[in-house]
């Protein structure tokens, strides 16, 4: 385990996951360098030098790190867009600065000679719902019968053939904003009458439709390196959480750590290998008949609330992985 070279953590200022893992790293004497990308313009200087293929970050407190040479591993947690430099207000200028800054940060992912958790290029590919479903099926999982289409006629035919109703969810976006407000998009079971009334809208935007599969409970499985944390979420006890548990506070849903079936665990790890991931958070459901169904993979998913709820030592496992 490294205790000499620092771990580079790329995230945002408000990140409780990073805070928890950093506490572990500090307790172990493991050096680290935290890059909060929101404060990029006010708290960091950076130099990318072709001569020695390096990226150096220095913060305003005099700390520095040279990537990849002096870095043990890099944890790509949850960076966000940088705030505008002080005084920059004009939209075009801000966009230009934002784009060039992002390009700089994206350059890090080209270096493969240090362990990434995860390389964002792998996250970008593996977050996509359609390839996830295809691979999960190939690996032996049952997956919901799925149609992604912008053809209302195909959608109507799909819905007509789907017993148990149609579930609609976004492929990527968690929400959107308009001048009138901001909106969060949940997964939702659409009733037949509503589907019939609005199916023409599918022509406006590719839409992911799935057969709705009844569940006994849900599983949130977080894989951190070789460690597997399977958390059972008893969402069906709360009417508001039955379709999408994010509709209610997690406090209202019973969480309990369980042991996964060996075959399920092996398949999840195989999926991560195929996507080049060392971290992943999976959403599965278990039907009343006991069958496990794959819903989706979140390659950079959230997990710390599970530790706080159940006591599962996930931050410690993450620190282990970063030091390995």
């Amino acid at each position: 385990m490294s205790k000499t070279r620092p771990v580079l953590i790329v995230t945002a200022k408000l990140d409780t996951h990073a805070d928890a893992v950093i506490s572990e790293l500090k307790a172990r004497g493991q050096p680290f360098f935290r890059l909060n990308t929101d404060d990029f313009h006010t708290e960091y200087r950076t130099m990318l030098r072709s001569g020695d293929r390096s990226v150096t970050f220095e913060d305003i407190w005099g700390r520095s790190v040279r990537f990849p040479h002096d870095v043990h591993a890099i944890w790509h947690r949850k960076p966000v867009e940088s705030n505008n430099p002080p005084g920059v207000k004009q939209r075009g200028t801000a966009d230009m600065i934002q784009s060039e800054t992002l390009e700089l940060l994206n350059s890090l992912s080209c270096f493969h000679d240090r362990p990434w958790y995860n390389n964002p290029e792998n996250n970008r590919v593996s977050q996509r719902k359609f390839p996830q479903l295809c691979l999960a099926s190939e690996l032996g999982f049952r997956v919901p019968r799925t149609l992604i289409t912008n053809d209302p006629g195909e959608a109507r035919r799909f819905a007509a053939q789907t017993q148990g109703g149609v579930l609609c969810k976004a492929m990527k976006e968690a929400g959107y904003s308009t001048p009138n407000g901001s909106y969060f998009i949940f997964s939702r079971r659409v009733g037949k009458d509503e589907f019939d009334a609005h199916a023409d809208r599918i022509a406006l935007c590719p839409t992911l439709l799935q057969e709705y599969i009844e569940k006994d409970y849900e599983l949130r499985v977080t894989v951190i390196g070789d460690e597997v944390f399977a958390c059972r979420l008893d969402s069906q006890a709360d009417e508001a959480a039955r379709i999408d548990w994010r509709m209610v506070s997690p406090d209202r849903i019973a969480h309990s750590m369980v042991t996964l079936d060996n075959k399920v665990e092996a398949a999840l790890k195989a999926m991560m290998r195929r996507f080049g991931l060392r971290f992943g958070a999976f959403d599965l459901i278990v039907t009343p008949e006991g069958e496990t169904v794959f819903l989706e993979l979140n390659p950079n998913g959230q997990w710390y609330w599970i530790e706080l709820t159940t006591g599962a030592p996930m931050a410690s496992a993450m620190a282990d992985l970063l030091q390995s």
Binding site: A12, T37, D38, H76, K78, P79, V80, E81, S82, L102, E103, L105, N106, S109, P120, E121, N123, R124, Q127, K172, E173, A174, G175, Y176, S177, S182, R246, A281, D283, N298, P299, N300, G301, Q302
Partner: peptide, 23 residues
């Protein structure tokens, strides 16, 4: 902050490198 100010680095562009919206 989730949908505007605090957008994912890379936002909705093809070069999105991060996934703040990834649950």
């Amino acid at each position: 902050s989730t949908y505007s100010t605090h957008r994912t680095a890379g936002g909705a562009t093809s070069s999105d490198t991060t996934h703040r919206r990834d649950d």
